[in-house]
Design a binder for these strands. Structure first.
Lengths: 128, 128
DNA sequence: TTAACAGTTGGAGTGTACTTTAAGTCAAGA
DNA sequence: TCTTGACTTAAAGTACACTCCAACTGTTAA
């Protein structure tokens, strides 16, 4: 049982973002005290943590909202939920592949700066 | 020597985006015919291809613009250019790590759907 | 009991990266 | 010559994902 400021600190997500995530249904409704203040339990914290991980990897909010929606509809949506996960996994796999290509290319370029471009520059400098 | 529509098809980037990239300096100015129409040469195509790769991996436009700007200033900016590449490589490496974590988690969840959640659901169904 | 403070809401504002629009130019074929 | 279609520009518009704001409420400490 934690306040929004505690959860905000724990996961390093702003209070605004936590409220926003709940408002759009990225996490299920958080329990409240009788005066209406959010009182995050284990389950809510688990959702926050999951969504932090997924969002930091760039998984689309829309897909995650759909997942949460189905989750709240009950057990019988398990197959549809799995489908969402599989689709997002495929998207993520593609993205990682693209990023790896880009990373390889950056490494190649950096290596070229170290071995060719910068040494050549120093040669010119030392001649003057 | 190619028109914007050829380059657009070749790299699957919209003509609008190609013009936009040139306008903001993400690629150096493209040569023009005497009537002012873009006439992409090898060099320009190379820049387009590089930026397509970098952007599809999520490398920040600002950093790429700075790189292009330095490139156009000449050889003496080589060290600064390398610094940009190194910084972007570090950012990219972190991102890939986060995405890999997220991917592992998706795989774990999918596996749980396959081995526990969905089989259990089928058991319930077959009982009725 | 009043001030301070952490929380609440709906809605407006922001940054990034395009994307569309409006208005126009140019070259080639009917 | 007229029209078609590909091209040009600056500027406004859009989508996504927050982020901030104004106005308000409830709890605690002096």
């Amino acid at each position: 049982m934690a306040t929004i400021s505690e959860v905000s600190k724990k996961y390093n997500i702003s209070q605004d973002t936590l409220r926003y995530y709940e408002k759009i249904g990225l996490i299920p409704p958080v329990p409240r005290t009788k005066s209406g203040i959010r009182d995050y339990d284990e389950t809510s914290c688990g959702w926050v943590e999951l969504m932090k991980c997924m969002r930091s990897a760039g998984v689309q909010i829309e897909a995650l909202i759909e997942y949460v929606k189905l989750f709240q509809e009950g057990e019988h949506t398990a197959l549809a939920r799995k489908e969402i996960l599989v689709e997002q996994r495929n998207i993520l796999t593609d993205k990682i592949k693209k990023m790896q290509e880009s990373l390889d290319r950056l490494n190649y370029k950096i290596n070229r700066y170290d071995t060719v471009i910068i040494p050549k520059l120093n040669t010119i400098k030392s001649r003057n």
